[in-house]
Nucleic acid binder design. Structure first.
Lengths: 245, 245
DNA sequence: AGATCAACGTAACATGCTGTAACAAAGCGC
DNA sequence: GCGCTTTGTTACAGCATGTTACGTTGATCT
C-alpha cells in the first residue's frame, strides 16, 4: 500500500492543524477539513483511507454526519470526542464508527488506534458490511451480536423486537450510567431516520416496560433495567463485552 | 507511560505549593490550581492523570466540584480533607472519588496512595464504570450494596424507597457521628442533580420518620436512628463494612 | 411544679413521576 | 385487502417525595 491518506475533520483550526501536522510528521498524508462539504469534496476528488471526525462540529452533530458519510462511501471513521462522557455514550450509537477516542488523547495511543483501524479495514472484504460486532454477557443473559439474538440464562432464545433490541444495546453499552429519556431517544433514532430531535411522549417508558417484561425475571421489581427517578433509566448490571472479528 | 501529571487543587497557597513541590521532588509533574475554573483549564489544555482535590475549597463544596468533574471527564480523583471527621463523612457521599486522605498526612503514605490509584486507573478500562460496592451489617440487619437491598434480622427483605435507601447509606457511612439536616440533605443531593443548595422544610424529618417505621422494631422508641436534639440525627449502632471488588 | 417555647414526630395532603393497559397507526407478508 | 406484528399515544392508577399543620416532647426559667 502507498502512503496512507487521512482526513482530519474538526472545526477548531488549532486542533485541526495540530492533528494534521502530527500525522504528517508520522508518515501520513493528512488533509484538513472543517465542514461536511469539504469532506465530500475530498472524498470525491481522491482516495481517503480514514477519517478522523470530531463529534461536535459546530452545531452540527457528528453522529449524523457520520451516518451520512457511511451511507455514501465506505471509509473507516474514527470519532474524536471532547468529553469522555460523550465517548462512552457514543458506543451506544449504532453509527458504524470504527473507533472512538476521547480528547485529550495520548499521541501514541492515537497513532496506534489509527493504524489498528486501517489494518482491520484492509483485512475486511467490504467495509459496508462491517459493524461493531460485540457480544454482551450480563447476569446469565447473552446478547449475541453476531446473530443479533438474545438468550436467557436458561439457554432459551428470547425474541425481542427491533426497537427492544436497540434499546438493550444502548443500555448494554452504558452499564451503571443513568441515561435520560432524551439520550436514549437520540441513540435509538440515529439508527433510523435521525430527524426526530425533541420530546416524544412516553414512548421510551413504554419501550422500557416492554423490554422489562421480556428480560426481567420479575418485571414488577426490575433488577437490571432500573429506573432512575427524575432522571431516566440505568442498566444496573455488570456487563462483559467481547469484540469480534 | 510517560511522567505522570498531577493536578493539586487547594485554595490555601501554602499547602498548594507544599504539595506541588513535594510531588515534583518525587518525579511527578505537579500543577497547582486554586479554583474550579483553573481545573477546567488544565483539563482542557492537556493530559492530567490524577487530581488531588481539597474537600473545602473556599466556600465551594469539593464534593460538588468532584461530581461535576466526574460528569465531564474521566480523571481519577483523590480527596484531601483537613479533618478526619470529614474524612469519615466523605465515605458516604457517592461522588466516585477514588480515595480519601486526611491531613496531616504521612508523605510516604500519600505517595503510595497516589500510585495505587494511578495503577488502578490504568488497569480499569473506564473509570466511570467503577462504583463503590459495599455491604453493611448493623445489629442483625444487612444492607447488600451489590443488590441495593436491605434485609431484616429475620432474613426477610425490606423494601425501601430510593430516598430511604440513600438516607440509610449516608447513616451507615457515619455511625455514631451526629449529622445535621443540612449535611444529610447535601449528601442525598449529590447523588442526584446536585443543585438544591438550601433549606428544604422538614423533608429530612419526614424521611427519617419513614425510614424508622421500616427498620426500627419500635419506631416510637428508635434504637438505631436516634435524634440528636438541636443538632440532627445519629446512627447509634455499630456498623461492619465490607468493600467488594 | 408549672409555664413557656422551640424542636420534633407524623398524619394528611399536594404534586409530580412512573408503570401499564388499551387503543391507534404504521408496516409487512400473504 | 386481510391479519399479524411492531410501535407510538393516551389515560388512568399507583407510588415516591415534599409540604403543611398540629399535637407532643423536652429543656429552661420562675
Amino acid at each position: 500500500m502507498s502512503i496512507p491518506r487521512l482526513l482530519v475533520v474538526d472545526d477548531d483550526p488549532e486542533i485541526r492543524s495540530m492533528l494534521t501536522q502530527f500525522f504528517q510528521q508520522n508518515g501520513f498524508i493528512a488533509l484538513p477539513a472543517a465542514t461536511e462539504d469539504q469532506v465530500h469534496g475530498h472524498l470525491k476528488s481522491g482516495r481517503i483511507d480514514l477519517i478522523l471526525l470530531d463529534v461536535m462540529l459546530g452545531d452540527e452533530n457528528g453522529v449524523e454526519i457520520c451516518a451520512r458519510l457511511r451511507r455514501e462511501q465506505d471509509v473507516p471513521i474514527i470519532f474524536v470526542s471532547a468529553l469522555s462522557a460523550d465517548h462512552q455514550r457514543m458506543a451506544g450509537y449504532e453509527v458504524g464508527a470504527d473507533d472512538y477516542i476521547a480528547k485529550p488523547f495520548n499521541p501514541q495511543l492515537l497513532l496506534a488506534r489509527v493504524r489498528a483501524v486501517m489494518q482491520r479495514a484492509r483485512r475486511t472484504p467490504s467495509l459496508a458490511y462491517r459493524r461493531r460486532i460485540r457480544t454482551f454477557r450480563f447476569g446469565g443473559w447473552v446478547y449475541d451480536g453476531k446473530r443479533d439474538e438474545v438468550h436467557a440464562p436458561d439457554g432459551y432464545q428470547v425474541s425481542l423486537s427491533q426497537r427492544e433490541t436497540a434499546l438493550l444495546k444502548v443500555l448494554l453499552a452504558n452499564p451503571h450510567i443513568p441515561l435520560t429519556r432524551d439520550e436514549i431517544a437520540a441513540a435509538l433514532d440515529v439508527t433510523g431516520s435521525g430527524d426526530k430531535p425533541e420530546a416524544q411522549g412516553r414512548a421510551i417508558d413504554v419501550l422500557v416496560g416492554r423490554l422489562r417484561s421480556k428480560i426481567e425475571a420479575n418485571p414488577k421489581d426490575p433488577q437490571m433495567l432500573r429506573t432512575a427517578r427524575g432522571v431516566g433509566y440505568v442498566f444496573a448490571c455488570d456487563v462483559a463485552v467481547e469484540d469480534e472479528a
